[in-house]
Nucleic acid binder design. Structure first.
Lengths: 222, 222
DNA sequence: CTATGAGAAATTATAGATAATATTGAGTCT
DNA sequence: AGACTCAATATTATCTATAATTTCTCATAG
């Protein structure tokens, strides 16, 4: 969701493939074969190739000339990298958005938080979480910054879906509530501080998987 | 220079068009007609379209479905936006790069600073300036962060070329020297602080153009 | 003199075809 | 068995062709 409105076949393919990569339907390293995808979508491969270029720019796919395109792989190092970039950019966005935050926006953000706490599955939690973060930064009115943050959210979501594959535990998001409280008080600095810490939480907590062994995984909290 | 190595025609076209947009050979709003560009490069328009997608992702072009691609326009607001993003991300990168900075890297950075001070034209100043900034952040080893910074540099450079069109005055870059001094002392926090302020300088200083009137322009210092 | 609208020209988006490159696998040799 | 060669196959990158859409032109009506 980097830029302009979605009309063309290429952008539709790009959106759908991005979703598959983010949700883990497509595993890291999977070869994306243009003809097969073209056939699936009932198109020629030309728009497919254009979709690839966008995925590449979003960091969701990697292309080696003449050797094809693969779903980008990722490791703990990249998770942390994305977390830190998010921290830096979302704090910047929040500082600029703060003066334009209205009570009704904050109410919507609170609804998103509640929706997140009540989510029964990862997908809806991710949606609610992203909604919260998007709501509080969008009023900054900085389109380039928002596009960058959006791409980073996709990367974050990817790590989330990868680690929480089967299990899902309900949690209450205290950070989101703290941020909202500070924002309602007009205390932007404290809100920003909590947000910065909150987002960096990503990739910090090792996760125990279904079989009971602690694998080389990571929690996504923000 | 967002991602993989450059082999394909599409990436070559993308690089060349990016350079033209950045240096101002192509004005904001200019329509990029795929057939014309294809003819110029002696190719068909298919790789040209792929190049467009990359330029779009870099924020150098804007595409409206079925209506074509144009060179992205920009205003003072966006200049500031890019400056702030650069400040946030370059500081982050510098903090991670600092432990890996060697004396020889810092020497190269100093050479870049000297080269900048001695530059007789915008283009070489921009090259030297970019070299300085790239040198001190590259050792952070965070590829996604570096790619993002690189795209922001392109945007910055664009504003630079747009404002300093004809005149060029030699200046001494005290900020760069201060940053180097702090880094040599191992004082990362102060180096980061200067860098943050330095980069934000962009877009802050109104500029007087050749005809003597102060137009709605802006200085690029960082 | 401006607004409007039909038709021509230009342009985009996609399809289908082709050449170049990479991958695979069967058969052979050691 | 394992490595090696070379042809068969698959895949990518690009070109040429075509349909669909937009933009331009200009004559004409208000």
């Amino acid at each position: 969701m980097t830029s302009t409105s979605e009309d063309t076949i290429a952008s539709r393919i790009s959106r759908i493939l991005a979703d598959r990569i983010v949700t883990g339907q497509l595993d890291p390293g999977t070869k994306l074969r243009q003809d097969h995808i073209a056939e699936e979508f009932g198109t020629s491969h030309v728009p497919v190739r254009e979709a690839f270029r966008r995925l590449e720019a979003q960091g969701l796919a990697v292309s080696e000339p003449r050797r094809g395109v693969r779903v980008a792989s990722f490791d703990l190092k990249e998770v942390r990298e994305v977390a830190q970039m998010r921290a830096a950019l979302e704090v910047l966005a929040l500082r600029h958005a703060a003066p334009h935050l209205t009570p009704s926006i904050l109410d919507l953000a609170e609804e998103a938080t509640v929706a997140g706490d009540n989510s029964r599955d990862v997908r809806s939690w991710e949606e609610a979480n992203r909604r919260f973060h998007t709501l509080i930064v969008t009023p900054c009115g900085m389109p380039r910054l928002l596009a960058a943050i959006s791409d980073l959210h996709a990367a974050s979501a990817r790590f989330l879906f990868a680690s929480w594959r089967s299990e899902w535990e309900v949690r209450t998001d205290h950070d989101h509530r703290a941020i909202l409280t500070f924002l309602r008080q007009g205390n932007v600095e404290n809100a920003a501080a909590v947000l910065e810490r909150h987002v960096q939480w990503i990739g910090q907590k090792p996760v125990r998987n279904a079989s009971g062994t602690t694998r080389d995984a990571f929690a996504i909290v923000g």
